[in-house]
Nucleic acid binder design. Structure first.
Length: 820
RNA sequence: GGGCGUGUGGUGGAAUGGCAUACACAGCGGACUUAAAAUCCGUGGCCCUUCGGGCAUGAGGGUUCGAGUCCCUCCACGCCCACCA
């Protein structure tokens, strides 16, 4: 039964919409999946929520754009090639076919003409065009940088792909640090805009907070510390507390800092070099192992350089140390240390016996060490007596006036490292010419395709380097011999603009397109109205996509006014089993296919909708199969009501009686409740309301007066319409049998306000906050009537026993609270 | 260490400051059946002497006529970030 509808929806193009559709546009999108094979429960959950929105918005009268695609580049395909020798393209396309089949079996409504696959040559071409244009615009650049090298994947990773414990988020190997020439995208140029646009987004607050923290804007000052006796040298430092200048008793360079060599005196050289060498060997996790107050560990990890810098406020020379608690990757890689007002500096100072000068008077009973709170400034020259806030502003002005420093905003956000030393990705379209240097491949020669004849086994060299025909190139500028770039792009580049491409018709467009997407189509559909995916993408994907959308607007590919790609974002919870995320790599997967075969896709969909709030995690337990069975049982009841209740059960010759009115009330209240629940992402309660409606219809069938056709038809039809976005196969079949035709474009039912309103309501009578009686009253009851009724209640009279109430709180028509 | 979130029956969960436990799963009882499955109906927090009461939303305070909901302290769990200067 489900298959028939799935085939029909595809054959008839039921879910295809075009840009000239007269209905108002609405764009529903689920994060496009990495094709790892047949769908897992996380996919089912995600695409069920998406499909519900597509079908519901369609019934509300929108032209709903519902595309799908596959994030088809990435490591697993390449690892499979290493393991089995199957080409990544062959492997990937087989996995896509499996996942696509699962999505079809789920009954999800897609416009398949818009399918995007990252590894399609046309998609690669535009990736590469964007890169070249960004290179021209100065938004892509090449730099030598300390990078995260994963020995298992034999590649460099983005900061975001290194987990908190210093391991690779894919292979779990301990990540090493290496210095390599890499390609970067200048996302930091957009840091402020990405930060400032956050508040206006209709996104979960915690995702916004994560983005805000990741961008990590902090205001302060950058200043130069003159090196004593070396007028040609100075140490640049960033601080958020310029007011604490008077407390600077030493300075610290990161071990990788370029000045370490020139500042270190001969007498200290051996010790400093030993420290630098030992730190270079450490992974991030080992480097952080002593973070906190472990002074023994700290004592091992710093060294005096022999040099001094001048404290600009006091004019006093202070020693310069090298220590690994200062990170080259943040700020300037050097700090002015204020032990009195920074706990890390305090710890280091204590370990190295360095002086502490307080510049903020701590509170009276202060027994702690560093004091970072507010207070009165001391030992701070012209700032003495000020508050910290005042002193901060004054200090910056003083720095700018004296030329020691400038106001500075610093970001935690780093530029986006996109180079990957892997095969199964989009090649970076540049060549290296002996004479001209870095030269982009001309746009009419794009895309640079991946050669098939390469060595996949890890060699330490990128796989593309193993193909001489690929590497050997002619310089587009001088025609001389050149070497082609052998790195490919981070796959997050692919996922940063696929939603724009989907506004067009990648699979149906007249070839060859002259643009990555039609700007008019983008203007019509974008931004995505409802974007649904896992919270795991809260930082990387969503931030990169926001950045890319802005860049493409600024480079005239997309409408310049389009800044934000995703207006409303919903992040669904994870599926867990045995306390851990359900995933293929952990081997705790319960495949959806077996439920498609047994209870059907509709029952599995309803399970995912009903099990709990969509944003919450779901625990897959021994009880889950019973819950899914329960969903299937309910759908069976609906089926029997819709197509099994014969005319003989109905009598149509009776005027509307009490049971009819009661059922009509339940029906119309269900419309109201389900509509509200859909708006607020509360699918579990929407299912509950529909089950109540089902129960009410059952009860109605058994009422003494007997069921009436009109009432019954309205209730069952409404049930079907409200259920359609959840269980579309069942409803499509029932609707066709009852009425003929397609249910998918039926209008969403509208509740009759007269039927939603009660003609009586329960008035709760409380005595000192405890419920003592319940009275059926008119909903329009007045305060005085309600109070009088409550006070007249026999149960109240008995308990009051003549005592005069001190106060009577009346909230008609729901509650009267009598206080004695 | 910082930030955010969660804690309600046997289980998943429901509840604009106003009837706590909707809806479901499991359980129990019944109808139908030779029997089972399926289906249908009923029951369903805990305690007390059943009438009727009393006590229950992680613990303890507070605000309020009234708190699962708001405020404070604490406990437990989860997630994100983390020598970020």
């Amino acid at each position: 039964m489900e298959r028939r509808w799935q085939e029909r929806w595809i054959a008839e193009g039921t879910w295809e919409v075009d840009a000239d559709d007269p209905r108002p546009p609405y764009y529903v999108l689920c994060m496009y999946p990495y094709p790892s094979g047949p769908a897992h429960q996380g996919h089912v959950r995600n695409y069920t929520f998406g499909d519900l929105n597509v079908r519901w918005r369609t019934m509300l009268g929108y032209a709903v754009l519902s595309p799908i695609g596959f994030d088809s580049f990435g490591l697993p395909a390449e690892n499979a090639a290493i393991a089995t020798g199957v080409h990544p393209r062959v492997f990937t396309e087989a996995r896509i076919a499996e996942l696509r089949a699962s999505l079809v079996r789920l009954g999800a409504a897609y416009d398949w003409r818009r399918e995007v696959r990252s590894h399609d040559p046309e998609y690669m071409r535009w990736n590469q065009v964007f890169f070249v244009r960004m290179l021209e615009a100065g938004l892509a650049y090449r730099a030598s940088a300390p990078v995260n090298w994963c020995p298992g994947c034999r590649t460099v990773l983005a900061n975001e792909q290194v987990l908190a414990d210093g391991t690779c988020d894919r292979s779990g190997d301990l990540v090493e640090r290496r210095q390599l020439e890499q390609w970067f995208l200048r996302i930091t140029a957009y840091a402020d805009e990405l930060l400032e646009a956050l508040p206006a987004l209709d996104w979960p607050e915690r995702v916004k907070v994560m983005q805000r923290n990741w961008i990590g804007r902090s205001e302060g000052a950058e200043l130069s510390l003159a090196v004593q006796g070396r007028p040609e040298l100075s140490v640049e430092v960033f601080t958020t507390r310029p007011d604490t200048l008077g407390g600077v008793t030493y300075a610290v360079l990161a071990p990788e800092h370029p000045l370490v060599g020139s500042l270190t005196a001969p007498a200290q050289r051996a010790e400093v070099e030993a420290l630098v060498k030992s730190v270079a060997r450490l992974s991030d996790i080992e480097r952080q192992a002593g973070a906190g107050t472990d002074r023994v560990a700290l004592a091992k990890r710093g060294a005096f350089t022999g040099a001094h810098v001048i404290n600009p406020l006091t004019g006093a020379p202070v020693p310069v140390y090298v220590a690994d608690y200062v990170l080259m990757g943040y700020g300037t890689g050097a700090i002015m240390a204020v032990p009195a007002e920074d706990q890390r500096d305090w710890d280091f100072a204590a370990a190295y016996d360095l002086p502490v000068v307080r510049t903020v008077a701590p509170p009276q009973a202060w027994e702690g060490e560093a004091y970072i709170g507010d207070g009165v400034k001391i030992n701070s020259s012209f700032m003495d007596g000020m508050t910290v806030t005042e002193a901060r502003a004054e200090a910056i002005e003083w720095l700018e006036r004296t030329g020691f420093g400038t106001r500075k905003v610093n970001y935690r956000l780093r530029d986006w490292l996109i180079s990957r030393q892997r095969y199964w990705g989009c090649p970076i379209p540049v060549v290296y010419c002996e004479r001209c240097g870095v030269v982009p491949v001309p746009e009419d020669e794009l895309p640079v395709m991946l050669p098939d004849d390469v060595e996949f086994a890890p060699t330490g060299e990128p796989p593309l380097a193993s193909c001489p025909e690929f590497v050997k190139a002619l310089c587009p500028r001088c025609g001389g011999p050149a070497r082609r770039e052998t790195d490919t792009m981070d796959t997050f580049v692919d996922s940063s603009w696929y939603f724009l491409r989907m506004c067009d018709l990648p699979q149906g467009a007249p070839a060859p397109p002259t643009a990555p997407f039609d700007p008019a189509a983008v203007a019509r559909w974008m931004p995505v109205d409802t974007y649904i995916g896992g919270v795991t993408h809260a930082i990387m994907h969503l931030l990169y996509a926001r950045f890319f959308t802005r860049v493409l607007g600024d480079l005239d590919f997309a409408p310049a006014a389009l800044r934000e790609p995703f207006g409303r974002l919903f992040t669904q919870g994870m599926i867990r089993m045995g306390g851990r995320a359900m995933s293929k790599s952990k081997g705790n997967v319960v495949a959806p296919e077996r439920y498609f075969d047994s209870v059907g896709a509709d029952a599995l969909r309803v399970f995912h909708l009903s099990v709990g709030p969509p944003a919450d995690d779901v625990d897959w337990t021994s009880q889950t199969d019973e819950l899914i069975e329960g969903c299937a049982r309910w759908l069976g009841r609906v089926w029997r009501l819709a197509v099994g209740v014969s005319a003989a059960d109905e009598t149509s010759d009776r005027a509307g009686a009490a049971p009819d009115l009661a059922l009509r009330r339940v029906t119309h209240r269900a419309i109201q409740a389900v509509t509200r629940d859909f708006e607020r992402w509360s699918y579990n309660t929407a299912v509950a309301r529909l089950r109540e409606l089902t129960n009410a219809i059952h009860a109605y069938l058994g009422c003494p007066e007997g069921p009436q056709t009109a009432t019954l038809t309205e209730a069952v039809d409404t049930l079907l319409l409200l259920l359609n976005p959840m269980a579309p196969h069942l409803v499509a079949e029932c609707w066709e049998r009852r009425h003929g035709g397609e249910v998918s474009t039926q209008p969403w039912p509208v509740a009759d306000p007269d039927l939603v309103r009660d003609d009586t309501t329960t008035l709760v009578v409380q005595l000192n906050g405890k419920v003592r009686d319940r009275l059926e009253v008119d909903p329009g009851i007045s305060e005085s009537e309600a109070a009088a009724l409550a006070l007249a209640s026999p149960k109240v009279v008995e308990r009051l026993a003549g005592v005069e109430p001190r106060r009577v709180v009346v909230r008609p028509p729901n509650l009267v609270n009598i206080v004695v």
